[in-house]
Each structure stands twice: as structure tokens, then as C-alpha cells.
């Protein structure tokens, strides 16, 4: 690993001052960043450790839950407020990584983690995300794990997070601090598609800091489910994952939230399928129709065509679990 400078400021202002310089990166849990630094995928001159900032809290507000950016994945997943009000987030978090990693990884860091595309990780291979203009190794390569929605000819990598899929489904809002003050953006607008700039994963500016996420109160707690399909039963990234949340009144769906992981460069919210579910009875038929709508525009590559069947089957299955059909 390349040598670097290390600072650990105690105030938000000093963090914001420190990160506004080229070659600087924030470190929180380090579970992804240290990994990337060891492999030479990234080589910052300076690390700004933000763990002294008071951003670990999980609090109920008048309109929902506020979760600090430094709250640990393990803590959030077992927090009473989260389990009671937003069980979908708890389920998504528990399906990610391992207990050791969840003890280190933070909410903000989880959002900032990079793709696990093997061509991004292997510095001897071309990758437009790692080295813009070098090409995409996955496009014609072993692309079994890759995107089926919204991919660009320059990058077909997927976002690896489970937590983010849950937060995208739950209409979360990202709270960001910058030198000009705070701003809030919808979670679904935080990450971006690769398009012509696969090197940029999200809309956080270089001189900004994630300070928390807010999840508005909802009526989904009774009917939520996170389904993760992977190569082994635990401790693996998703081939496909589905976050499903339903508000059911007397057997009829009032509201629905659906998002998928492992299928796009960002957590993939299924707005059209959600609309199609409103007013429908809780039945396998309704769910299959929604899944069909969700798959419109999907496109497979050489080795990931199985996702075109796996994804709709997973959506149906997740909805069956969420609604209590199984």
C-alpha cells in the first residue's frame, strides 16, 4: 500500500476543510477503502478519519427516523427503532457482508462503497471506472454478476450494497453537509447510472460529507421483505436482490415500494411496477404482473442472461413473503 498522511479532525468544519484538497479521501469503517488501497485501485495521499464526529445517533423525529452517517451497520440492523419502524432496512443490512464487517462498516461508508466488478479490482485489466478511457473488461468478458438495467457501453458494473436497496425502496433522504451548509437529496437520486462517466458513482461533491439519512414514517412495517439471491447462502454479493414493502388494506394493496440490487449501477427502484400494484388484490397473479412490468427494458450480456428469469421470479417471491402469502 502506498504511504499516505493520516489526520483525524474533531469537528465537521475541519473535516470539510481537509477534504477540499486533491488526493484526499475520507475514511470511516475502511472495509472497502483499505481493501481498494491494498490492491492499488485507489491511492490517496491523505486519509481524513471522520470517526471523531458525533454522527452515530439513531433518533426518531416527528416525521421519521434519522440515522447518523457513522452508525455501524451492525448497530442499525439491531436497533429497536429500526426493527420496529423500518424492518426492511434491518433485513437488508443483515443480509450484507459478515458480522465482523458489519461491526466496522458505517451507513455513509456503505453508500460510498465501490462496485465489486472484478475488472475494476484487477488493475491489470481495462476499466473505465478505475481508469477512464481504458475500456470495459466486463462488456466482452466474464459478466455473470453484471447489470441488466441502465448499463452504459462504457460500464456494466453494479452497485454492491444491500442497505442502499432498502433505503431506496423506503424513500429515504440523504443529508449532506458542504461548506455552504446542508442539503438534502432523495436516496434514489444519490447514486447515478454510469453513462459517460462511470468513474463517478454518485452526486456527492468532492468537498461534501454525508452526515445522515432520514427515513419517513410509513405503513410498511408489517409487510416488508428483503430477498437476496446469491451463490452461497451467506456472505456473498447479490446476483439479484429485492426490497419489497406493501401497505395492505383488507387484502388490497394500498401502496407498494420495490427496489432491486445486483442489477444496475445504482439501487434500482421499480416505480412502474409499484404503480401497477396499487389497488390490486394480494395474489401471486398481481405480483407476477408487476414483475413483468419491472423487467421492461432489461438487457442481458453473454453470461448474465439468467438474471432475466431470476429477477422477475425474485420480485414475485419477495412480494409473496412481504404480503404473507408464504
Amino acid at each position: 500500500m502506498k504511504q499516505f498522511q493520516y489526520v483525524h479532525p474533531s469537528t465537521q468544519q475541519s473535516v470539510l476543510d481537509a477534504i477540499n484538497k486533491p488526493g484526499t479521501k475520507i475514511i470511516a469503517g475502511g472495509t472497502n477503502l483499505v481493501d481498494l488501497m491494498k490492491r492499488g485501485v485507489t491511492a490517496p495521499d491523505k486519509l481524513v478519519d471522520i470517526n471523531r464526529l458525533p454522527l452515530k445517533g439513531i433518533t426518531a423525529t416527528k416525521t421519521g427516523l434519522h440515522i447518523g452517517a457513522l452508525a455501524l451497520n451492525s448497530v442499525v440492523s439491531e436497533d429497536n427503532l429500526v426493527v420496529e419502524k423500518q424492518p426492511l432496512l434491518s433485513m437488508a443490512l443483515k443480509s450484507g457482508a459478515s458480522p465482523q464487517l458489519r461491526n466496522m462498516a458505517t451507513v455513509g461508508g456503505n453508500m460510498m462503497q465501490r462496485t465489486r466488478c472484478t475488472y475494476f479490482y484487477d488493475i491489470t485489466m481495462p476499466c473505465n471506472k478505475r481508469e477512464p478511457g481504458s475500456g470495459c473488461g466486463a462488456l466482452e468478458g466474464f459478466n455473470r454478476m453484471h447489470a441488466i438495467f441502465g448499463a452504459s457501453p462504457q460500464c456494466i458494473a453494479v452497485h454492491p450494497s444491500d442497505m442502499c436497496v432498502g433505503l431506496a425502496a423506503l424513500d429515504a433522504v440523504v443529508v449532506i453537509a458542504g461548506r455552504k451548509g446542508e442539503r438534502r437529496i432523495p436516496f434514489t437520486g444519490f447514486h447515478r447510472l454510469a453513462e459517460d462517466h462511470p468513474e463517478t458513482d454518485n452526486h456527492l461533491a468532492k468537498d461534501e460529507l454525508i452526515i445522515g439519512v432520514e427515513i419517513p414514517d410509513n405503513n410498511f412495517a408489517k409487510h416488508s421483505y428483503y430477498l437476496k439471491v446469491r451463490d452461497r447462502q451467506s456472505y456473498a454479493f447479490a446476483l439479484v436482490s429485492v426490497a419489497a414493502a406493501l401497505d395492505i388494506d383488507n387484502g388490497t394493496i394500498r401502496q407498494a415500494r420495490l427496489a432491486m440490487g445486483g442489477v444496475a449501477h445504482k439501487p434500482w427502484r421499480l416505480f412502474d411496477a409499484e404503480k401497477a400494484l396499487i389497488g390490486k388484490p394480494v395474489s401471486e397473479e398481481s405480483f407476477k404482473q408487476a414483475a413483468q412490468i419491472a423487467m421492461q427494458g432489461a438487457k442481458a450480456y453473454q453470461y448474465n442472461a439468467f438474471k432475466l428469469k431470476l429477477a422477475p421470479a425474485s420480485i414475485t417471491e419477495a412480494l409473496k413473503h412481504a404480503s404473507g402469502l408464504v
Binding site: V34, S98, Q100, N103
Partner: peptide
């Protein structure tokens, strides 16, 4: 690289992967 768990230790009572934990932290 945080994939096998052989390096697991407890930091303030919580298990972590020591291979992905910087000593300065």
C-alpha cells in the same frame, strides 16, 4: 482482504477483521 475471517480480533469487545483495520484507527 476481509474475505476469510482468519484475522478476526475483538476491538473494545466487538469482533472485526484486523486486516482491514488501520492500526492508527
Amino acid at each position: 482482504y476481509g474475505q476469510c475471517g482468519a484475522c478476526t480480533v475483538h476491538v473494545d469487545g466487538h469482533r472485526v477483521n484486523s486486516c482491514l483495520t488501520l492500526g492508527v484507527m
